[in-house]
């Protein structure tokens, strides 16, 4: 298994499924925060720095 491949998959998961993953880690974000993340996701401008700290900590 390629570690680089796995890291890429994890990064993509964090940058696309932030709401589900934050909830799973007991870190529910308000609808406004989610809306803003969705906007950045849809614009294609979202980066690791935009994520909540609990997800940044999991970033590869």
């Amino acid at each position: 298994m390629s570690k680089q491949k796995k890291d890429c998959q994890k990064a993509i998961k964090l940058l696309t499924q932030y709401e589900r993953l934050a909830n799973k880690l007991n870190s529910k974000l308000s609808p406004n925060r989610i809306q803003e993340l969705n906007r950045m996701h849809d614009d294609g401008t979202i980066t690791v720095n935009d994520l909540h700290s609990i997800l940044r900590r999991e970033f590869p």
């Binding site: 870190s27 308000s30 925060r33």
Partner: peptide, 14 residues
Amino acid sequence: DGEAYAASYYQEIV
């Protein structure tokens, strides 16, 4: 953002 979202808020502050 209110008490319902306190966990994520205080995590960010930490």
